[in-house]
Write a protein that binds this DNA or RNA. Sequence first.
DNA 1: ATGTCCATGTAATCCGTTACATGATTAT
DNA 2: ATAATCATGTAACGGATTACATGGACAT
Lengths: 189, 189
Amino acid sequence: MALAEAILVCLTERPMTGYELAKTFDSSIGFFWRASHQQIYRELQQLRADGFVDSKEVIQADRPNKTIYTISRRGLDQIRSWSRDLTDRPPVRDNMLLKLYALDRIDLDALATEISNRLDRHRARLAVYEEILAKRYSGRQLGTRATGRLLGLKVGLMTERGYVSWCEEALAAIAACRPKDARPVRSRS
Amino acid sequence: MALAEAILVCLTERPMTGYELAKTFDSSIGFFWRASHQQIYRELQQLRADGFVDSKEVIQADRPNKTIYTISRRGLDQIRSWSRDLTDRPPVRDNMLLKLYALDRIDLDALATEISNRLDRHRARLAVYEEILAKRYSGRQLGTRATGRLLGLKVGLMTERGYVSWCEEALAAIAACRPKDARPVRSRS
DNA sequence: ATGTCCATGTAATCCGTTACATGATTAT
DNA sequence: ATAATCATGTAACGGATTACATGGACAT
């Protein structure tokens, strides 16, 4: 299982609490690996038991106490040894593709709405990636770490760009499947 | 859960046994939704209990008996009503991207091997998709069902093409991270 | 007053993977 | 002989999702 390694990888950046990790899994590393706070707290117990992280409780006045986790030497070794396991691409399970596969049996309006929602999300995500690209990776010499981040970012850019244009094409193709229906509003002329 | 609907969608094509369904989930529909035979047999029990499929046992002489499943009226309704649930993109969890994110902490040779393996797979899958495109969707008028299938195929083509060129770029970038190492064989000149 | 942020958890359920099991037929 | 194909399952485990729970601080 790789949730453990995803957390360890985060902690190579800096020591963090479970809460901060959970937030990180909603943004940066979350682009590659999704995890909820419940998963993270559970896994942190395990990582501590295995000696991959050290923990230190910090008593706070106004706020709840917190526990800061730091990656240990054994944790770093674990990342390296995990990196030698060759994995395959993750399995695909996408409702939208399933719906397309049965396009003649489903509600086309609902699917059009779904694709349109996704189009919005892909555009928004693409904008985020393009901003990161411009701000952090423009025309500089990159070290190993930054090279890896940039390659990951490029997977994201490629994916989002691909889906943006695919969604546009799909919406047009699905609209063409219903030539008899009234088009969704504003087709009054 | 959508495994149920994935099976129902398959059964809109024709009645099938669990075994045939399992094979289908290794090819055509398996490009969009992976499922093992154990999952399928378990789910078929449930679908029958819910009245979404009808089953008929066929006694065979030379071979083991088999059970043929047919989608029912209620099953078709279920597909339609499921198609109205708006879902979001599936969560990403990819070891390879995680390794990239920690490129300075991992074994670069192992990652290069992993990416190279994936490159082979992406090329092979792309060839399959291109053949399907040429054989089944060249220059004809398409009905609703075929339109959906073609749109799905295009997602596949886009994905595989993107990854093929990304893998090539990534291998070059990772090789450039180790300028001091002996290049993997045949760098004798 | 209502909601968001900080900060951490437990419990139940569902889903997917891996391993184990059987047994005849047909192809190399 | 050996492997693949046909055909169907059970059992155990582990990971992910969803729901529930607490409670103060601070902003609108």
